[in-house]
Design a protein around this nucleic acid. Structure first.
Lengths: 246, 246
DNA sequence: CCGCATGTGTGTCCCAGCGCACAGACGCCG
DNA sequence: CGGCGTCTGTGCGCTGGGACACACATGCGG
């Protein structure tokens, strides 16, 4: 595993015109993202926006009761901290590192400055935000109407898109917390998937064996989000490595 | 009921600096919004953005199975058609008039133009968008964890904020479709609320009698969204008539 | 003012998912 | 290599909500 880091590992940054990219590059700071790290908590003033390269961040909402659910996930296709350029500065949700890795971060001030420029950077960020909105709406509908197994498949697929190896380091307990369901529900669903030969797992490690099987069992939500990301971020710079967007 | 229409009945428009407001005013077109009218369908290119004054619009998502759910609602505090300035042009969801009334609409081209100006108009729109995002995330979590009754209360309260009279024209069937639940579930929940003296209804009409009671029974989601709208849109222009924001 | 479409109230059955409780099983660390 | 913490499997009973099936109201249009 080569550890050569580059901002262009993040699709948003990679999609920027060279001039814009160069302008920002000097200000990007590579930071490690350990599992469980909290990038921000509800109402907290963000100091940086994070462009993940290998890390995956989960936008999470915790209710007063302690129950929680993932709102959306952000990997190397996006950025964490949209409220910085949206103007609200904070959000009622939090952001937690779901898969350890790295990200490039940009200071709050610099990002806010992008708003005034109203250039390609802002345009790209807003498009991404719309894709994120799609993800959120889909999550809302999915939560309402789809089974735990369908959602698990969707979640695995989305994570898979951000982890090329297909080897996820993830306990069932954590997955349950992501989806906002009972741990036992995941055990059962995952058991069925393993039995069907689609995945295999052992104590905190999940390996996807047959991606297509997951796609069959997943709800439409996965495809919708995937397609929408492709649509919104493709014509900015046609060739990204979103791979198999269909 | 005075039928004097004015763009300033929409809080976003009203919050604009005078110069900006005047610039747009000439291009705003007052349109009636009949119940059930579809402003856009999934994937459809929007031709206008709508700033409701008395109408309420429901952002809606319909699954392949036919099941559906409201993603968020837009009243005189907001605007329908954010994808126009976000850059995506279309969304996978649709927008349907949930309560008849009026709105001012603005042509696509003009709104897109606002993006390039990167002025107060865009800033306000983006802030509103963030509030909308909050509403969507809250919907997602609410769908996961809260009971039908709690959600009904939340929905009633949010609608109430947009209908000063407290007299809603709305069948249980429709409410059910909004929340993405069974009609019978609404019948039961509404029955309990009526029994408790909080609301009264008859064949397609719902009257709220005791707002505070609904607030008690609603989940936290209502307050979160309400507070966030207040926070995000208040310091643009302090005095809006969002009334009792708490 | 009658009738029928359209809302609303019930009741019954069923099941996914929750809460809880505990039994194994793995694997890391001393 | 042994022990313990963590993760996973399983078995309850319970319940909210879904699907379906009617019976009854209501009020609009003819």
């Amino acid at each position: 595993m080569s550890s050569a880091h580059s901002p262009s590992q993040n699709h948003l940054l990679a999609a920027l015109p060279a001039a814009e990219f160069d302008r920002l590059a000097g200000h990007l700071e590579l930071v490690p993202m350990p599992l469980g790290a909290v990038l921000y908590e509800p109402g907290e003033q963000l100091q940086h926006a994070y462009f993940p390269t290998t890390a995956i961040v989960s936008l999470h909402y915790v209710l007063e009761s302690g129950a929680s659910a993932e709102i959306a996930g952000v990997g190397n296709e996006g950025v964490v901290g949209i409220s910085l350029f949206m103007g609200g500065d904070t959000t009622p949700s939090s952001a937690v590192v779901q898969t350890a890795g790295h990200a490039y971060r940009l200071e709050r001030r610099l990002l806010k400055h992008e708003f005034d420029r109203a250039g390609p950077v802002l345009q790209l960020l807003l498009r991404y935000t719309q894709a994120l909105i799609t993800q959120m709406t889909q999550t809302a509908v999915c939560n309402r109407h789809h089974s735990v197994e369908q959602q698990l498949c969707r979640w695995l697929l989305m994570t898979l898109d951000r982890v090329p190896s297909g080897q996820l380091v993830m306990t069932q307990e954590l997955v349950a917390r992501m989806l906002g369901v009972r741990r036992e529900g995941i055990t059962e669903a995952a058991g069925r998937l393993q039995h069907a030969g689609l995945i295999s797992y052992r104590r905190g490690h999940i390996a996807v064996l047959e991606r297509s099987g997951l796609e069959t069992r997943a709800c439409e939500c996965y495809a919708v989000v995937r397609t929408e990301i492709g649509r919104l971020l493709s014509d900015v710079k046609p060739r990204q490595r979103l791979s198999a967007v269909a």
